[in-house]
Amino acid sequence: MLARLMTARFGAAVLAMIVVVTASNFLVQFPVQAQLGPINLADLLTWGAFTYPFAFLVSDLTNRQQGPQVARIVVLVGFVIALGISAYLSTPRIAFASGMAFLVGQLLDISVFQRLRTWRWYLPPLVGSLIGSALDTLIFFSLAFAPVFAGIDAITGHADGSLGFPAPWLGIGGEVPLWTSLASGDFSVKLLCALLLLVPYRLLMGSLAQRAAVAA
């Protein structure tokens, strides 16, 4: 185990995880200010939705090449460091919500991936990412913006706002609290990204396997 942690590949995975999570924690504060026909994208998307799915790519590749134990360590190290950086770049409530969502979602993804490890190559990362993303989205948007968790603002001494004011669901439906529309839009993008990221996953999986064979 120690030998697997003292490698450039492990360091690269940790660094990638830190960059992805920190960027996502910062970008989730900014809705996408654009209009798509009658739909105002600011009512259903934040920029963080486009960067966060790469965290699953990092953990899935690590799991595939180095096993679930190393993948969990990458997640835990990335979690601790990124949480500190995110607390500086964003607000305490968002940093806390993101940290909890990230930790639970990533560890669930690793567990699901491991259970499906012997299935077709695309099923472990796809199913793990979708299940992990669903729980991650629910935890993050609830803790960060739902009025029921507004007590976190009182504890941290910083008011983030609940985003509880009404907005059309996904820009076209009936009025709902804005944070629920953002959560729905966020998860929709994660679904799309989970499919698109199968391409770099497959390419990188093959490349890493070839390097490991050469090194052996």
Rank of each mutant, 00 (worst) to 15 (best):
M1A: 12
L2P: 09
A3F: 11
R4K: 14
M6I: 14
T7H: 04
A8W: 05
A8V: 13
A8I: 13
F10L: 02
F10M: 03
G11S: 02
A12M: 15
L15D: 06
A16G: 12
M17Y: 15
M17D: 10
I18S: 03
I18W: 06
V21N: 12
T22C: 12
T22R: 10
A23W: 04
A23P: 01
A23I: 14
S24F: 04
S24Y: 03
L27P: 06
V28D: 09
V28P: 03
Q29I: 10
V32H: 00
Q33K: 13
A34I: 14
Q35M: 06
L36T: 14
L36P: 13
G37P: 06
P38M: 04
P38L: 08
I39C: 02
L41W: 00
D43S: 10
L44K: 02
G48P: 00
Y52P: 00
P53G: 03
A55K: 01
A55V: 09
D60I: 07
L61V: 03
T62V: 06
R64E: 15
Q65S: 11
Q65V: 06
Q66K: 07
A71Y: 00
I73S: 02
I73A: 08
I73H: 01
V75M: 09
V75W: 08
V75H: 01
V75E: 02
L76S: 09
G78D: 01
I81T: 08
L83R: 10
S90K: 01
T91N: 13
T91R: 12
T91A: 12
T91K: 10
P92G: 05
P92H: 11
P92E: 13
S98L: 07
F102R: 05
L108A: 08
D109P: 06
I110Q: 06
I110F: 00
F113W: 01
L116G: 00
R117S: 14
W119G: 15
W119A: 15
R120L: 12
Y122P: 08
P124M: 05
L126F: 13
G128Q: 07
G128C: 06
S129W: 00
S129V: 04
S129M: 12
G132I: 00
S133F: 08
A134C: 09
L135F: 08
T137Q: 08
L138V: 15
L143F: 09
F145S: 09
P147W: 01
V148T: 14
G151C: 11
H158E: 07
A159Q: 11
S162F: 14
S162K: 11
L163M: 07
G164A: 12
F165M: 10
F165D: 07
A167R: 01
P168D: 05
G174F: 14
L178V: 06
L178I: 10
A183Y: 00
D186W: 13
F187S: 01
S188R: 08
S188G: 15
V189I: 05
L191F: 06
A194L: 11
L195R: 04
L196Q: 10
L197I: 08
L198K: 04
Y201E: 05
R202Y: 15
R202C: 14
L203P: 09
L204Q: 04
L204T: 03
L208C: 07
L208W: 07
Q210S: 15
Q210P: 12
R211P: 01
A212K: 13
A213C: 11
A215P: 07
A216L: 12
A216E: 10
